[in-house]
Nucleic acid binder design. Structure first.
Lengths: 192, 192
DNA sequence: GTCTATACCTTGATAGAC
DNA sequence: GTCTATCAAGGTATAGAC
């Protein structure tokens, strides 16, 4: 289905999709143009360079993340529900054509990216990690979940698992994502 | 440093390195040629198509893996040591210029790969997963380690963590790989 | 086995008409 | 805002001399 909204929005939606399906070096302006029924040059009007497009994708994802975590309603949700929301982001990517997460996609292409994109994605991953660490910490303190080790280490391990499992799911099957999620919850002493 | 051995071997070494650093769509025959001080056409002599080169890289990695796990000496090692060997593969990739693992690299490019490469990497990831699951299972039975849940789920989660953490380490720093490994050991009731 | 030379395609990007 | 037309650069791949 084609996305609604302005051309700029449609380009962004499709580019995000292709980036997470094919990698940054795996899709082209031509690819976007033909699928949207417009011309190459029209895309360059909205996003002068591919770098601009890449930055826009990262910034939009950042915005969505911040919007959720800084929403006062969400901050008071049980830790378990906040964790489930976080996992749902990955689940959503899996459901939309086996997309890998944005961080995973850009991480493997990392050394081919312009510096501006590198620092944008660095920033996002740092913020995500801090948020997860704080969440795990407060969950452990309140007794909502349990684990050994530091919340920092645990958060990095958890994010790595989710990132990696979206990739393994491509090679081995969707169920391998669910196996990982199941194990993550078991390892936090949570039923799933 | 340039690799030793025949030209074919040098090409394979460099291509493997570039594949895991830049992604399958991030390096070219030209890239290989200039760095090896030979010409484009010389590479095509040894590997007629990029697909042939990709297959060769996967098959060589497979071979190394099988050689180790089917070595009778290694099969009787303590579970902990076998696990440490497995982690060392990832550590080695990290040390050699922040390479991601072969599976991670090819997973994000997966839908741009020729079918032959897809099935080759599918096969490898299946074999690795089975080996890890068996290792964890026997370790739990012998009391060498402990974890909740099925050894299948745990193995997928463990491999995903390692795969993902090599990628996160690019964005966040090498220490984030070590944090993940530390947590993996803690979660198996092993000191590290 | 390696070279020169080249064919052919795709890529990101721009100029200027409408 | 979108089009046509075009560009230079880089990509995979081949033919044929040495």
């Amino acid at each position: 289905m084609a996305s609604r909204g302005t051309t700029k929005r449609k380009i962004l939606d499709l580019a995000e999709n292709l980036l997470q399906r094919l990698g940054y070096n795996g899709f082209s302006y031509h690819h976007l143009a033909t699928e949207l029924g417009i011309k190459n040059a029209a895309i360059h009007y909205h996003f002068p360079s591919k770098e601009d497009l890449g930055i826009a994708i990262i910034e939009r994802t950042k915005g969505r993340f911040y919007k959720w975590i800084y929403n006062p309603e969400n901050r008071v949700l049980p830790v378990r529900q906040q964790l489930e929301w976080f996992v749902k982001i990955y689940q959503y990517n899996l459901n939309r054509g086996h997309r890998v997460c944005l961080i995973g996609a850009l991480a493997t292409d990392y050394y081919t990216l312009p510096a501006s994109m590198q620092s944008a994605i660095d920033h996002l991953s740092n913020d995500i990690q801090k948020w997860v660490a704080r969440l795990l910490d407060s969950g452990r303190q309140s007794g909502e979940l349990a684990f050994e080790g530091s919340s920092q280490d645990k958060s990095v391990c958890l994010i790595s698992s989710l990132t990696g499992s979206l990739q393994l799911a491509r090679l081995m099957g969707e169920e391998y994502f669910h196996k990982t999620v199941k194990q993550i919850f078991v390892d936090l002493n949570l039923t799933y």
